[in-house]
C-alpha cells in the first residue's frame, strides 16, 4: 500500500512540475519587461513618474484623432550612435471622423479657457495631486483618453480634471525637455 501511495505521489509530482513550467513563463517575460523599462530610464534620465505622465499625455493627444488600443501602447527609447530616438507603437482601431475630432478639440478649447479664468495658485496644487492619482490607476474611469469619447453633458463634471491635466502637461513638457538636454550634454562630454 505504501509503495502505491509513493508511486502515486511521484506521478502527481511529475505532472505538477509540468504545470509549474508553464507558470514560470512569466519569470522570463517579467525580467524582459522590467529591463526594458529600466533601460528606457537609463537611456534618457527620465524618472518613471515622468515617463508615465508622458505616456498619459500622448494617449490623451492621440485619442482626439484616433480610436486605439491604449493597453497595447508601447513606448521605447532606442539608442543609435549618440542619438536617442523615441519609438511609439500603438494599434489603431479606427480613425475618428471629423465631427468627433471637432468635438474633442472643442472640449480642449473650453478647458483651456476655463483654466485661464480659474487660474488660482492654491487650487492648482490640489489639482496636481488629482492628476497624478488619475494616471497612477490605469482603470480609472476618469482616465485621460476616455474623456474625449464621453457625451458632452458629462464633460462639465470632468472639466476641472482636464484643466489640471493641461496645466500639468505644460510643466512636464518643460521638465522632460530639460532632462533630455542634460542627457545630451552628458553624452557630449
Amino acid at each position: 500500500m505504501g509503495l502505491l501511495t509513493n508511486l502515486y505521489n511521484k506521478v502527481a509530482k511529475f505532472f505538477r512540475q509540468q504545470e509549474g513550467a508553464a507558470e514560470d513563463e512569466a519569470s522570463k517575460s517579467v525580467a524582459t519587461s522590467r529591463l526594458k523599462l529600466v533601460l528606457m530610464q537609463d537611456r534618457t534620465n527620465l524618472t518613471p513618474k515622468i515617463l508615465e505622465q508622458m505616456r498619459g499625455e500622448l494617449v490623451d493627444l492621440l485619442s482626439k484623432y484616433l480610436e486605439m488600443d491604449k493597453d497595447l501602447l508601447e513606448l521605447n527609447f532606442e539608442q543609435e550612435g549618440d542619438q536617442v530616438a523615441l519609438m511609439l507603437s500603438i494599434p489603431v482601431i479606427r480613425a475618428k471622423d471629423e465631427d468627433e475630432i471637432e468635438e474633442a478639440l472643442s472640449v480642449q478649447r473650453n478647458s483651456e479657457d476655463e483654466s485661464v479664468e480659474t487660474d488660482d495658485l492654491s487650487d492648482e496644487e490640489e489639482k496636481e495631486e488629482e492628476y497624478i492619482e488619475s494616471i497612477d490607476s490605469e482603470d480609472d474611469s476618469e482616465g485621460i483618453g476616455e474623456e474625449t469619447e464621453e457625451s458632452s453633458s458629462e464633460i462639465d463634471e470632468n472639466e476641472s480634471n482636464l484643466v489640471s491635466e493641461v496645466n500639468e502637461g505644460k510643466k512636464s513638457k518643460k521638465s522632460s525637455k530639460k532632462n533630455n538636454e542634460e542627457y545630451i550634454e552628458s553624452i557630449d562630454t
Binding site: A21, D24, E25, S27, K28, T32, L35, K36, L39
Partner: peptide, 17 residues
C-alpha cells in the same frame, strides 16, 4: 531558456540592439 526561466539570445539581442 527552454523553460522560459532565462532570457533567450533573441531577447537579449533585441534589447541591446
Amino acid at each position: 531558456i527552454k523553460n522560459n526561466e532565462m532570457m533567450s539570445v533573441d531577447d537579449v539581442v533585441g534589447i541591446l540592439e
